[in-house]
Design a protein around this nucleic acid. Structure first.
Lengths: 218, 218
DNA sequence: GAATTGATTGAATAGACATTCAATGAGTGT
DNA sequence: ACACTCATTGAATGTCTATTCAATCAATTC
């Protein structure tokens, strides 16, 4: 019953397109039914493809899940990399860009958050998942620390440690994400964003421009 | 082959003891194999009991999982409730007690954290899990906000909102937990504890005694 | 000490799953 | 047209699970 009738889309497609199609379906299914509920039957049905295709384009289910996580990690990384790589921005502005990426609607929505925490919570494959996300997380934290160091020097701040601020930020990112996912009525994306900026305003009070961007909450 | 031979423990035991025994085994198994890997066979083997007992003492697997989460939530709550209920402690001290509970070795260890995030990540039952933990989370956050309000009044702080600090703390708690779970080499319990206190020192600078307790890291 | 109650056992059942694979289909080059 | 490659299909297979339940066992009551 797959696509045949729905579209003029060709029965066959380049592998890269199919892989992406399956990854998208996997994200959707994980967000709805969790990793245990993510059966290959459900994924292929969501994608409008047949069961056997997963084992053709990915070796097996574990690979599909790993590739899905990799995709999310890259998507997130690309968002802040664009700005932190520029040379014409001040450290504080780059820091703001990383925070904006963290709470960007394309990343920080209930669907994607559900998938992130599904991976975090899956003890069984924690090691392989960690290997995937660790590189990117470490990279971001080191860049944050670097930027904090620059801000501290600029502002002549004392009694505050760049690495500590970066680690605290990292904790705030993940924790606020979790709160948004678990209690969407009480925690919104916009409020979380503002709270991180408030923390930075506390840490670096002489860099006044930590105000939140004008955006509707949620 | 169960216990019969291992101990002089009687074959039969009061239901409450068996329930606790099964919950303990469930915590152990979830921490090792995640929720998908938590089969009744694995749980009963870990407990040294027979397969059918789970369906006798709990109605089914879902109930066992829900009761396990309830147990963890209560265990955590009891730890800070003891101190926040007292009338002879200053607000700042009570705030410290809540933070100490959050990073108490009995709560904040890799085994229990793995279980917490296994539940958080399980989309399928998120609603029932949330119903269990929401009450306790809301309660803690409201008490935190209340205490912050008292601290703000004591210290005459301006430009800082108690509810915001409480929400930021809540985020920090969860995020630092996740970091400890995922990257135990880079994030330790002690460092997390100190970071939360550093945040409070930033927010409430005139309450000087936010120093960390003397304890070895990890 | 028989009878009764409640706890415990594990084999049996039925359903769901990932993975395999033989068959089919569509493009591509000749 | 033809052969050939690659993508796609879905039925079949074997494994693993939760749940049921009849049988067994220990403790308690009468």
């Amino acid at each position: 019953m797959p696509r045949h009738l729905t579209e003029n889309s060709p029965r066959t497609a380049p592998p890269e397109a199919r892989r992406r199609q399956l990854i998208d379906a996997t994200v959707t299914v994980i967000s709805r039914h969790g990793i245990p509920g993510t059966t290959l039957t459900a994924v292929t049905r969501e994608a409008g493809l047949s069961l056997g295709l997963v084992n053709f384009h990915f070796r097996n289910k574990d690979t599909l899940l790993a590739e899905t996580l990799k995709f999310l990690a890259q998507e997130h990384r690309a968002l802040w990399m664009r700005k932190t790589a520029r040379t014409d921005l001040a450290p504080a502005e780059k820091l703001r860009a990383i925070i904006e990426a963290q709470f960007h609607p394309r990343i920080c929505n209930r669907k994607k958050l559900a998938v992130w925490f599904a991976f975090f919570g899956d003890t069984t494959h924690r090691k392989s998942y960690r290997d995937i996300s660790a590189g990117i997380d470490v990279e971001r934290q080191e860049i944050c620390a670097e930027l904090c160091r620059a801000v501290i020097q600029e502002g002549g701040y004392h009694g505050i440690c760049a690495e500590d601020v970066a680690a605290t930020l990292e904790g705030l990112f993940d924790g606020l994400w979790l709160n948004i996912l678990m209690y969407p009525d009480r925690f919104t994306r916009g409020a979380a964003h503002r709270r991180v900026l408030s923390y930075l305003a506390l840490a670096f009070p002489r860099h006044g421009a930590w105000s939140a961007p004008a955006e509707a909450a949620q």
